[in-house]
Measured scan of single mutants.
Amino acid sequence: EDGINLEEIREFAKNFKIRRLSLGLTQTQVGQALTATEGPAYSQSAICRFEKLDITPKSAQKLKPVLEKWLNEAELRNQEGQQNLMEFVG
């Protein structure tokens, strides 16, 4: 629908959760960090719904690039050390 690749979103949601957990981050931490930079659309409950795919494809499509960018950045910081990650997450 609307050129939205559901399979891709499903895959990303699954990987997002795995990668988030491997960084040792909670949904709350991700939500707080993103709410600070991106606004309330990225709250803990939004992250939770995204991971469960309990949102419309359109919403998922909107969240995905922001979550992807944030997660990549978080992983980079983590490679530089846990301290850097925690500063990034705030």
Rank of each mutant, 00 (worst) to 15 (best):
52 K>W: 00
62 K>G: 06
30 V>R: 02
24 G>I: 00
70 W>H: 00
72 N>D: 14
81 G>T: 00
76 L>W: 05
78 N>T: 09
46 A>K: 06
78 N>H: 15
40 P>Q: 08
70 W>R: 04
6 L>N: 12
42 Y>A: 05
11 E>D: 07
17 K>M: 08
55 I>S: 06
61 Q>N: 13
28 T>W: 11
38 E>R: 07
2 D>P: 01
37 T>D: 05
54 D>N: 00
78 N>A: 15
21 L>Q: 12
28 T>N: 10
56 T>Q: 07
4 I>W: 05
54 D>Q: 11
56 T>M: 04
80 E>K: 04
35 T>D: 10
61 Q>E: 14
50 F>M: 06
24 G>F: 01
76 L>T: 10
18 I>W: 08
89 V>I: 14
69 K>H: 06
44 Q>T: 15
63 L>N: 09
13 A>I: 04
19 R>V: 00
61 Q>R: 15
21 L>V: 08
28 T>Y: 13
41 A>C: 08
50 F>H: 01
22 S>H: 11
84 N>D: 12
80 E>R: 10
51 E>R: 01
68 E>N: 13
32 Q>L: 09
12 F>L: 03
66 V>E: 02
37 T>L: 11
34 L>V: 06
90 G>S: 10
76 L>Q: 12
32 Q>K: 07
4 I>M: 05
35 T>M: 13
41 A>F: 05
77 R>Q: 09
77 R>P: 05
88 F>R: 12
75 E>T: 05
67 L>D: 02
4 I>E: 08
31 G>Q: 05
65 P>K: 10
6 L>W: 15
39 G>C: 02
80 E>Q: 13
47 I>A: 03
56 T>L: 06
37 T>V: 11
87 E>D: 13
56 T>P: 10
62 K>V: 12
8 E>P: 03
3 G>T: 13
53 L>Y: 03
2 D>M: 15
24 G>L: 01
65 P>Q: 11
60 A>Q: 00
36 A>H: 06
73 E>P: 02
38 E>W: 12
75 E>P: 06
71 L>N: 04
82 Q>S: 11
13 A>K: 01
20 R>F: 01
20 R>Q: 00
78 N>P: 05
69 K>V: 04
10 R>C: 08
49 R>H: 09
86 M>A: 12
40 P>T: 11
30 V>T: 02
43 S>Q: 01
90 G>F: 01
7 E>K: 00
54 D>E: 13
33 A>C: 12
18 I>Q: 15
67 L>N: 02
28 T>C: 12
2 D>K: 14
51 E>Q: 02
44 Q>C: 06
60 A>H: 06
28 T>E: 15
20 R>L: 02
32 Q>A: 14
36 A>C: 07
23 L>R: 08
85 L>S: 11
60 A>L: 02
45 S>P: 09
16 F>G: 02
11 E>A: 08
84 N>P: 12
79 Q>E: 11
60 A>R: 03
86 M>N: 13
44 Q>N: 06
27 Q>I: 13
81 G>D: 09
71 L>G: 06
38 E>D: 08
87 E>M: 02
45 S>V: 07
82 Q>M: 09
62 K>W: 05
89 V>Q: 13
56 T>G: 08
32 Q>V: 11
19 R>I: 00
31 G>W: 07
7 E>A: 12
68 E>W: 02
6 L>V: 08
20 R>H: 01
60 A>Y: 08
78 N>I: 11
4 I>N: 13
71 L>Q: 04
33 A>N: 01
29 Q>W: 01
45 S>E: 15
18 I>E: 14
26 T>W: 00
22 S>R: 15
81 G>N: 09
41 A>W: 05
83 Q>S: 12
57 P>Y: 08
30 V>H: 04
61 Q>K: 13
7 E>P: 01
64 K>H: 01
62 K>D: 14
12 F>H: 01
69 K>L: 06
87 E>T: 09
